[in-house]
Amino acid sequence: MNIVNMESHKKMKYYQLYEKIKQFGDNNYIGSIVIDENYEIIQMNEKVIKYFDNDIYRAGKYFGNIFGCYNIKSEAKKCGTTDHCDNCKIRKHVIKAFKEAFISESLLVSKYFCINDNLVLKWFEMTFMPIQNNDKVYLMVSIIDLTELMTFKVDENIYPMLSDEGFITLKEEFHRSTCSKLHKLKDDKTDVYFIHVSMNKEKHKGIDLGSVWRSDLLVDLYVFLKNIISDEDLVCRFTEEYFVLFLTNKSECDVNQIEEKIKEYQIEEFVIKSALNYSILKTQPRIALEYLTKENQVIDSLYKDLFLNQSAN
């Protein structure tokens, strides 16, 4: 197994340490990478590359850039600089290893990557082990790909991890962003739109959604909704059963086009075959704020109140 050098051997000031790391990579039957104090990957073995179907960015220096982290690639930024990076479990343990010389063993990680132009959820078991040679510290990371084993995990276990990784917009983030946009528009006479999207449960009575709502279906539906709205608009998955979209600066024609796309969308996975239910609320920013800034109410009920109360129309 050959080591793929991501940087010049000059990165390794001490030849003895380099030889030890090289031997570790060559003899390791699992994936392994070496990270320096700048959080740059300086070496990896062929096993890691195979985990990503050989679709890696060899010119990159950082984990998210080299392996195509969804959040990094979608925003075209350097790993560690997006709003999502602070929640990245991999980044947290890399930083902890360097700052505290902390060893993390058998850490279960899920993350979305863009591999061969496809969005893929990967599951890894990772161990982070800092090593020191004189005044230099390096981090050796072993990686076991558990993706095939985790394929059958149900969403009730997967969803909290996806939220931590920043792929799915959190309710609190969605609420803050919605209110911020409404405050900016509160003196305008423009309309804003909320769209409530859910599964048509009448098509599959007696089926426990929690046991069949799998990760690939979650991704397909979430990506679909993100793709039919503009970058300035928002979408949030509130529960396993429904999403809320928030649209601004849209004409009725624009909203009608989005509605048509929702009508055409079909869910077919495992035992689910269903269309989507949806409802559209057109309201004024000032009116919406009256509901979304009420105190002592959980976020879910705020949006439900907004939809259910006829006076908001």
Rank of each mutant, 00 (worst) to 15 (best):
F307W: 09
Y222D: 12
L170W: 01
E7I: 05
K122V: 03
E295F: 10
I95Y: 07
E148K: 15
D86R: 10
A97D: 02
K171C: 03
G60T: 07
L225F: 01
E7T: 08
S230E: 09
S104F: 13
V154I: 15
T169E: 04
A97W: 04
M161N: 06
I168C: 01
M12I: 13
L225D: 01
V235K: 02
K263E: 05
T248M: 10
G206P: 01
T81G: 02
N157K: 14
F246A: 04
Y29M: 09
F102G: 00
C79P: 00
N87H: 07
C179G: 01
I144W: 05
L292D: 09
G206T: 06
D86K: 13
D191P: 09
L306N: 09
Q297A: 05
I49T: 07
K92D: 04
V298Y: 11
K261N: 05
V235H: 00
E125A: 08
F67I: 02
N27R: 06
G31K: 03
Y62G: 00
L121D: 01
N71Y: 00
V137I: 15
V34A: 11
T151S: 14
Q132C: 13
C85L: 05
K13E: 09
I262L: 08
D53E: 13
N27H: 07
F307K: 10
L308H: 12
M126H: 03
G68W: 02
R176M: 08
T190Q: 13
V244C: 02
L185N: 10
Y39R: 13
S198Y: 09
K171I: 02
E241Y: 08
A312I: 07
M126R: 01
L209C: 08
Y138S: 10
L225E: 00
D36P: 05
K50P: 00
H84S: 07
D305T: 05
N313I: 10
L245H: 02
E290R: 15
A312C: 14
A275F: 14
F270E: 15
Q43S: 10
V154S: 15
T190W: 04
I168H: 02
F98V: 08
K171Y: 01
E268F: 10
D191N: 15
